[in-house]
Design a binder for these strands. Structure first.
Lengths: 129, 129
DNA sequence: TCCTGTCTTAGACTTATTCTAAATTACATG
DNA sequence: CATGTAATTTAGAATAAGTCTAAGACAGGA
C-alpha cells in the first residue's frame, strides 16, 4: 500500500494511506462522501477537504479513475485499465464489465473525431442468482 | 411546437412553450441552468423551479433525454432515439454520434445482466475543419 | 360564482464539491 | 539543534446543481 503510493509518485501521509486503504479495498465505486465516512471510522479527525484533495491527487497520478455515471455524484474506480460499466436501474449500483466482454466497431468512420478513450455504458437490471 | 407538446400529453403553458423553444431549438445539450438563462431572456419572470419541473416533465413524457456526461451537471438532449456521445476533452462540448456509426458486440456474453439500453461514450478531440 | 386541480413563484434547503486562510508537519540545511 | 520553506491538513465558508415547500395565480366545470 505504502509502496503503491510511492510507485505513483505520491508522498505518503497517514491520511493518504487511510484513503488508499478504503479506495483500493473491496469497495467498488465509492463516492467521495462514502470514502470520507469510511476513513473517519478509523481516523475521525480527517477533514472532508483532505479526502477530496487526496482522491483528486490519486486520479492525477493514475491510481484511480473518476466516472460520472450517477446523477450528481462522481464515483471512483480502482480499476484504471479501460473497461465498461453496467448500472442497475433499480439499485443504482455500478458494475465493471471487462474490456474484452464487448467489442465496439465503426470507430474508423468517425473522421471528425480523434478518439482517445471510450467506454460502453449499459443500463438495465442485474439478474438475481 | 404547441402541437408537439400536445402530442406528448403535455398541457401547454407559456412557460413550457418558452422552455420547449430553447430545448428543441438549435442548441444541443444545454444544461438546466443554461436553459433557464435563455428562457429568461424572453420571459424574465420564469422561476428556476419551473424550468427544472418542465425539463423533468419533458423527460417523463419522452420529449427529451437526460444525460449525465459532464461532471456535476445533467444535460438534456432533444434526440430521444438511441445514439452515442462524443465529448471533447478540451471544450467539454458534447456531440451526438448516430446509432449506426458504431456497433457493439458481445452483449450475449453478459449473462448476469439484463441490458435495457446502452450507449458508447467517447472522449477525445474534435478535429478542426 | 365557487371549487378544485394544475401551474408557477420565491426562496429555503440539500448535496456534492471547491476554496480559503490558518495551523501543522516535514524536511533540509546552516 | 534551530530555522526557514514547502507541503499537507484542517474547519468552515463559498459555490453550484438541483429539489422542496408553502403560498398565490389561473383555468375549467358544476
Amino acid at each position: 500500500m505504502l509502496a503503491t503510493l510511492r510507485q505513483h509518485g505520491i508522498q505518503p501521509t497517514p491520511q493518504r494511506l487511510a484513503v488508499a486503504k478504503v479506495v483500493l479495498g473491496r469497495d467498488r465505486h465509492p463516492s467521495a462522501e462514502e470514502v470520507w465516512a469510511k476513513v473517519r471510522r478509523r481516523c475521525p479527525t480527517v477533514s472532508r477537504a483532505t479526502v477530496y484533495n487526496t482522491l483528486n491527487l490519486f486520479v492525477d497520478k493514475g491510481l484511480l479513475t473518476m466516472q460520472v455515471l450517477r446523477e450528481g455524484t462522481a464515483v471512483f474506480d480502482a480499476e484504471v485499465r479501460p473497461h465498461h460499466h453496467f448500472i442497475d436501474e433499480r439499485t443504482g449500483r455500478i458494475y465493471d464489465v471487462p474490456w474484452d466482454a464487448l467489442q465496439v466497431q465503426g470507430q474508423e468512420s468517425l473522421n471528425h473525431y480523434d478518439v482517445r478513450e471510450l467506454q460502453v455504458v449499459l443500463r438495465g437490471r442485474r439478474r438475481k442468482e
